[in-house]
């Protein structure tokens, strides 16, 4: 019998660094000796680029568009460290239903039993993050991923998207869906950014699994079409990703988050807006205020 594959979904608002983070985690896990698959669930189909030297691969849906049946080897491509790369793909912008496309692609791979046959340790789904419809929730529904992580910066819109994802997780949590592992805090450089994320995870009963600073090393690596793990394995940034990957590999117990409702979220954001303004104008609000 094959070992239990750990299936993980990584969500986040568009442009927040999901694919960069996911690819580096995949690369780090592969470098640590695990068998890994990365499944890009975004119609842009560029999730696995940096694992494959910047090259695009044929997507599941592109292949389906041409013919009715698809074989595993037509859509599975190995990249850095032997990571299996799959892209769900999707329709041209503005037509069809990308959400249904994700469902079709994920179900097809499940039917082909590739997860079992490849004897994988990890499958990472890299999913477009706003969970706009049922299609983008399919990786967190019953029988697909068990753990969800979300990539978020301290920007309000990224947190808003993360909060929406928490709502999706909460909805499916009673019916055997995936639970939340935690937040991967990305682009955390300013001290207040860390505080904002820390406060958000406290409010929503979850945790931060890693803080990833913004780094020029990542940009340099991506311009070469590589992950940081591949291009600069000894850099500080690579250590951050290795640490994050280890944390995720060791992670076992995910929980149901407690998302804020829209009014609570607005109030929470307004409170932070006041605090940041006070910081900018030099007002002292800490314990030192009494001096």
């Amino acid at each position: 019998m094959s070992k239990k594959t750990k299936q993980i979904a990584i969500y986040g608002k568009g442009g927040i660094g999901k694919s960069t983070t996911t690819s580096n985690i995949s690369a780090a896990l592969a470098a640590a000796g695990y068998k890994v698959m990365q499944f890009g669930c975004d119609p842009k189909s560029d999730s696995t680029n940096t694992l494959r030297g910047g090259k695009y691969i044929p997507t599941v849906l592109d292949t389906l568009r041409e013919k009715n049946t698809v074989k595993a080897e037509e859509v599975l491509f190995q990249g850095f460290g032997g990571v299996y790369c799959v892209e769900a793909g999707g329709p041209a912008p503005g037509v069809g239903c990308a959400g249904r496309g994700i469902i079709t692609a994920v179900q097809l791979l499940k039917q082909l039993r590739v997860f079992d046959e490849l004897d994988l340790d990890f499958v990472l789904y890299d999913v477009l993050g706003d969970v706009v419809c049922g299609g983008f929730a399919v990786p967190i529904r019953e029988g697909i991923a068990e753990h969800v992580f979300t990539v978020s910066s301290a920007d309000f819109m990224a947190i808003y998207a993360a909060n929406n994802l928490f709502k999706g997780i909460q909805k499916y949590s009673n019916s055997g869906g995936a639970l939340l592992g935690g937040v991967i805090a990305n682009s955390i450089n300013a001290p207040y950014a860390k505080e904002i994320i820390d406060d958000f995870v406290k409010q929503t009963s979850t945790q931060v699994v890693g803080y990833v600073p913004r780094s020029v090393t990542v940009t340099q690596s991506e311009l070469q079409g590589k992950t940081t793990i591949e291009a600069a394995p000894n850099s500080e940034q690579a250590k951050v990703y290795q640490h994050l990957a280890q944390r995720i590999a060791n992670h076992t117990d995910s929980k149901t988050p407690t998302p804020l409702d829209i009014q609570e979220l607005r109030e929470w954001a307004a409170k932070w807006a006041d605090q940041l303004l006070a910081m900018e104008t030099g007002e002292v609000r800490s314990a030192a205020a009494s001096i």
Partner: peptide
């Protein structure tokens, strides 16, 4: 069929 739903049926 599913193909048209995903890619658009126009």
């Amino acid at each position: 069929y599913e193909n048209e739903i995903v890619f658009g049926g126009e």
